[in-house]
């Protein structure tokens, strides 16, 4: 009898907890149903239709079943090629960004003179690579960014070229090529790591200083406390950054596939085909995300599990 009552109250408490939890998430649930769900359903419907305008100027959906998907997979010769190149590029850039941003965040979290200013500089890529600022600085995305401005735009001077010519080298030495590609690559990674660095920094700031105090009392070296404290405590943010990097690298507007999607819809007016291609692509992103999540989540340290 007594245990029955106890069980009953435990169940009640669980139920109440569940309802409270659901109430906390309510803003998102409402927002999703009102603003995301039906646009996504419409997008899905578009992928199975051929869209045209009728005389009144309204959109008419004509059901074409799987035609758009078949078209994307078998009749668009560039799609699979572009997909492969975009995934190949992703496989190289994603780990590079993740390691680089963690490394920089750890350095920026140390104490040194001018730290606030250096941090502000590393924040700049987030600004330059967002929204309208991106429209003004599209040239920032091209490979030959290290041009010195010259009034004669046909004959631009590369910074690396300039430095080497000052040092007495010739303009087409192999070192020049290596130096300028290296600079471009580092620049590219640095600029794609802005958001990740900030997330890691916030994670590092959230680690309680008491943990480090305790470890130094116990005689841990810096190297040991990195492996035993910093890395486990930052690991939840590694997962966040991995997921974000996948989405950012594969889904940002400069990606070739995303570009194709928009040009298909906006320039050619082929909304159905664009939607089908988009959905195939997003499904691939989801599968990659699932894999990344599964692998990394196993190494993430959660306090609640101990």
């Amino acid at each position: 009898m007594n245990t029955n009552i106890k069980l009953h109250s435990l169940q009640k408490r669980r139920l109440r907890d569940g309802i409270t939890g659901f109430l906390f998430t309510l803003p998102f649930v409402v927002g999703f149903i009102l603003f995301i769900f039906s646009p996504v359903v419409m997008y899905l419907a578009m992928s199975f239709s051929k869209l045209s305008l009728n005389d009144a100027g309204a959109m008419v959906f004509e059901n074409v079943k799987w035609d758009n998907y078949i078209n994307v997979l078998f009749e668009q010769p560039d799609f699979l090629k572009r997909l492969a190149s975009s995934l190949g590029d992703f496989a190289l850039r994603c780990p590079a960004i993740l390691f680089f941003s963690l490394f920089i965040a750890i350095i920026l979290n140390q104490r040194f003179h001018g730290r606030a200013l250096v941090r502000a500089v590393f924040f700049l890529p987030v600004l330059v690579y967002s929204g309208a600022a991106l429209m003004f600085s599209n040239d920032a995305l091209s490979n030959d960014y290290f041009k010195l401005l010259s009034s004669d735009s046909d004959e631009t001077v590369n910074l690396a070229q300039y430095v080497i010519s000052v040092l007495g080298g010739t303009e087409d030495s192999p070192i020049l090529d290596i130096v300028s590609t290296l600079m471009d690559k580092i620049y590219d990674i640095t600029c794609s790591s802005g958001v990740q660095i900030l997330i890691y920094l916030a994670g590092l700031q959230s680690i309680s200083p008491q943990l480090y105090e305790a470890s130094s009392v116990e005689g841990c070296t810096g190297w040991e406390s990195f492996w035993k404290i910093t890395l486990p405590m930052i690991s939840p943010m590694i997962l966040v950054n991995a997921v974000y990097t996948v989405i950012d690298v594969l889904g940002n507007p400069t990606n070739t596939i995303i570009n194709t999607l928009y040009s298909l819809a906006m320039d050619s007016g082929n909304y159905g085909l664009s939607a089908a291609m988009g959905l195939i692509y997003f499904l691939i992103i989801f599968i990659i995300l699932g894999a990344v999540f599964f692998v990394i989540n196993r190494f993430v340290f959660y306090e609640e599990n101990i």
Binding site: F24, P27, V243
Partner: peptide
């Protein structure tokens, strides 16, 4: 939303988490 998802157990929690990531992918 994040606090609700992190600290409470209830049916549909994982689905909501999935939808959160979904809004980020699209």
């Amino acid at each position: 939303v994040a606090y609700g998802l992190a600290k409470f157990r209830f049916y549909g929690r994982r689905i909501i988490m999935g939808l959160v990531i979904f809004t980020l992918v699209i």
